[in-house]
Design a protein around this nucleic acid. Structure first.
Length: 374
RNA sequence: GGAGGGGUGGCAGAGCGGUCAAAUGCAACGGACUGUAAAUCCGUCGACUUUAGUCUACGAUGGUUCGAAUCCAUCCCCCUCCA
């Protein structure tokens, strides 16, 4: 295999590790900010790096439409194109199979999308997804899958998962091995344990550099998601990174790390930054709320992001009310910084047992968020 | 002085006899957001009670009418054009 993964220490089901890629290392547990269209919305790549992020997520479907993977290749690859020299993982388009239902047609061969931009038709097969991600120079290519929607009956989830497994094989076959690059398979099976098991076995048999858990955080709720995570990670090879796709809220991430997950991505910190929700040690804050109008305090005491270092809640509230882009930029920066600080805290706790001290403090702090005066 | 056009909920602005507590937008207040069709979407927005309902409301007063934001009279303001 072409991607090296080291596990330094485990604590319960949790693991402290490091993933080595051609473009640098990634300490795990890791959170990957989402940069769908070749940019983390409202952030300069240098700023994203300043938060401590070591790897970004890009998207096959969106970059295929604009500007096209050939152009990105011609411009020297996605790292150079977007000025992000560190590792990049690209989603295969599998999430769009679910999120763009109605704009796509699914067959055994692949998916035909009617572009949400101009209606033009695009065909995405496992082979085509591999070719595009190769063009993008992605360090971690994701197999093309179908993110199974929730709720799905056992039968629907089975049919969907089985196709994803056939596509996983085709993805693996079409993937070109290179040093410092790798491909991850994606487990499906919705909330059904037997299907998750079959899926895990199929993927393990094919053999990947890492294994993702897909089809979660799609509306089933945290309780059900944790039920699945109580067993799903352990079904996957122990010596490879495990990536929970699209998750999540801070407490989702902590809960998943405790259950043995190593990698995460989510639009939550960036999207929330654009919709005035800020994440803090003491829970979320909607900076648009009137109670912040005359609050001279920083958003989060002790945070070293530019927002918290230099501006008051009153000022961010004002910027937000005026629809100023700076509000979006600063809130996004803060949220990404918060997520990276959370991951760093988890890693440090894992390095210096016991992890339970950290998680106990985390849950206690989050609970205090109910006190609105904070 | 002459001619004309207006005054509607925080603002702008529809409505021009009943289906009007009054469209729509903005503002205000709150909520949602999980591999990004999202700087987006949803709700509330006269008062009191709340399935329902009661009361006070479209410059002011009086009138016509079963019924008026809508028609008439008077008054008070505002705007445009001509002297």
């Amino acid at each position: 295999m072409s991607l090296k993964y080291e596990i330094f220490k485990t604590s319960g089901k949790s693991r402290l590790g490091k993933l080595h890629t051609r473009h640098g290392d990634v300490d795990t547990p890791a959170f990957m900010p989402v940069g769908t269209c070749g940019t983390v919305k409202a952030m300069m790549p240098e700023s994203v790096a300043a938060t401590g992020a070591q790897i970004l997520l890009g998207n096959t479907y969106h970059l295929m439409l604009r500007p096209g993977s050939e152009l990105v290749a011609k411009m020297g690859g996605l790292h150079k194109f977007m000025n992000w020299p560190k590792p990049i993982l690209t989603d295969s388009g599998g999430f769009q199979v679910m999120s763009l239902t109605g704009l796509r047609k699914l067959t055994e061969e692949g998916v035909t999308f009617s572009s949400h931009v101009d209606g033009r038709k695009y065909f995405l097969s496992p082979e085509e997804s591999m070719r595009i991600q190769y063009n993008l120079d992605s360090n971690i290519t994701m197999a093309l899958d179908e993110c199974t929607p929730f709720p799905s009956t056992h039968e629907q989830a089975k049919v969907s998962m089985e196709r994803s497994m056939r596509w996983a094989q085709r993805s693996r076959d079409a993937f070109i091995d290179r040093d410092g690059y790798g491909i991850f398979g994606i487990q499906q099976g919705s909330v059904y344990k037997d299907l998750r098991e079959i899926s895990a076995q199929a993927l393990t048999k094919i053999g990947f550099d890492g294994y993702a858990i897909g089809g979660l955080a799609v509306g089933e709720g945290q309780d059900k998601m944790f039920e699945v995570l109580d067993y799903a990670p352990q079904m996957l090879p122990e010596d490879k990174p495990r990536y929970l796709m699209g998750v999540g809220r801070p407490d989702d991430i902590v809960g998943a790390v405790l259950r043995g997950v190593d990698m995460f991505d989510c639009v939550m910190p960036t999207r929330s930054g654009r919709t005035s929700q800020a994440f803090t040690r003491f829970g979320t804050i909607n900076i648009r709320n009137a109670r912040h109008k005359e609050d001279p305090r920083p958003l989060e005491e002790g945070c070293d992001c530019p927002l918290c270092r230099n501006y008051s809640r009153a000022y961010i509230h004002h910027l937000q009310k005026c629809n100023e882009v700076l509000a979006v930029m600063l809130l996004t920066w803060h949220n990404i910084a918060y997520y990276q600080r959370l991951m760093k805290g988890l890693r440090e706790a894992l390095a210096n047992d016991p992890l339970s001290d950290f998680t106990q403090q985390f849950y206690a702090d989050q609970a205090r968020g109910d006190i609105k005066e904070l």
